[in-house]
Simulated scan of single mutants.
Amino acid sequence: MNEKRLWNLSELEAFGLNRATIRKRLKAVGIEPVATGRSNTPLYDVIQVAPHLCQRPIKETDAPDLMGFKTAAELRAYIQAEREKRGLGEDCKDLITREDYENEIATCIAAIKKFASTAITRVESAIPNATGEQLESLEALYNFDLKAVSHEISV
């Protein structure tokens, strides 16, 4: 192993940590010295230890995930504000209930189905001299457009 890769604790302080913190982090991940230098100074492979000295320590806690908020109080305040905002939106009729939304979509779908079932019949009535081939082409176009509308509604 290249000796320039072997650093003692004093040299590892270049990572911005004190010796005690370095020892603690290396011990936590199970890294042992790979050699000893003068005066039995422990030497560590800098390539092996650098990732553990550069990253912020991960706190192990039983605390719930706070979704990026610093404290539980901030998270609670955010949730409460969102509830109040939703309530105000509903009170001002800016928001609709899920039931109303589903009823509106059902009405739209019913209107589209009715259109699909009557469109060709209306064209036949309005243009009595249309050929069967023309009506089939028109029906294919209607079906294509109806599938596109159906896809947009379902997405």
Rank of each mutant, 00 (worst) to 15 (best):
Leu146Gln: 07
Pro128Phe: 01
Leu141Gly: 12
Thr131Arg: 04
Val49Ile: 04
Ser117Glu: 15
Asn8Ala: 06
Thr36Leu: 15
Met1Ser: 10
Ala20Trp: 11
Pro57Asn: 09
Lys93Met: 04
Gln134Ala: 15
Asn8Val: 04
Ile112Thr: 04
Val149Cys: 11
Lys4Gly: 00
Ala50Ser: 11
Ala77Gly: 02
Arg5His: 12
Ala130Val: 10
Arg98Phe: 08
Lys4Val: 00
Arg98Trp: 07
Cys54Ile: 03
Gln134Tyr: 06
Thr21Ile: 02
Ile58Met: 03
Ile105His: 01
Leu6Asn: 01
Phe15Thr: 03
Ala119Tyr: 14
Pro51Met: 00
Asp62Ile: 09
Leu66Trp: 09
Ala119Ser: 09
Glu60Thr: 11
Tyr78Cys: 08
Lys113Ser: 10
Arg76Val: 10
Gln134His: 10
Ser39Val: 04
Arg76Asn: 10
Asp145Met: 14
Ile109Met: 08
Gly37Trp: 03
Asn129Gln: 12
Met67His: 13
Leu26His: 08
Asn40Ala: 13
His52Glu: 05
Thr41Tyr: 02
Val123Gly: 06
Thr118Val: 13
Asn129Asp: 13
Leu135Ile: 11
Gly37Gln: 01
Ser125Ala: 14
Lys59His: 12
Thr121Gln: 15
Cys108Ile: 15
Ala63Cys: 00
Glu90Met: 14
Asp62His: 05
Ile109Gln: 10
Gln48Cys: 09
Asp91Phe: 11
Leu141Arg: 14
Glu82Met: 14
Leu53Glu: 02
Asn8Asp: 13
Phe144Lys: 12
Pro57Lys: 04
Leu135Arg: 04
Cys92Tyr: 15
Val46Lys: 08
Ile58Cys: 00
Asp94Ala: 14
Leu88Gln: 13
Val155Glu: 11
Phe69Asp: 05
Glu32Pro: 00
Tyr78Asn: 12
Gly87Tyr: 11
Phe144Gln: 11
Ala14Gly: 09
Tyr101Leu: 12
Thr107Pro: 05
Arg5Lys: 14
Ala110Leu: 10
Gly16Gln: 09
Ile79Trp: 07
Ala28Gln: 07
Ala111Val: 08
Leu95Asp: 06
Ile109Ser: 07
Arg19Trp: 05
Asn18Arg: 15
Ala126Cys: 05
Lys4Arg: 00
Val29Lys: 02
Asp62Ser: 08
Ile105Thr: 08
Met67Ile: 08
Leu75Gln: 04
Ser150Trp: 11
Ala72Pro: 12
Ile105Trp: 02
Gln48Thr: 13
Leu88Phe: 08
Ala50Arg: 09
Asn2Thr: 03
Arg86Phe: 06
Gln55Arg: 12
Glu136Lys: 15
Arg76Ser: 07
Glu90Asn: 05
Thr36Asp: 09
Arg25Thr: 02
Ala20Met: 10
Gln48Gly: 01
Thr41Cys: 06
Leu53Val: 04
Tyr78Leu: 06
Thr71Ile: 04
Ile58His: 00
Arg56Pro: 11
Arg56Val: 04
Leu9Val: 08
Glu13Trp: 06
Thr61Val: 02
Ala106Pro: 05
Ile120Lys: 09
Pro128Met: 00
Glu90His: 11
Ala72Asp: 12
Leu17Cys: 07
Glu90Leu: 14
Thr118Asn: 12
Glu124Ile: 12
Thr61Asp: 01
Val29Ser: 00
Lys70Leu: 15
Lys59Thr: 15
Ile109His: 05
Ser10Met: 09
Leu6Ile: 01
Lys113Glu: 14
Asp65Tyr: 06
His52Cys: 02
Ile31His: 05
Leu135Gln: 07
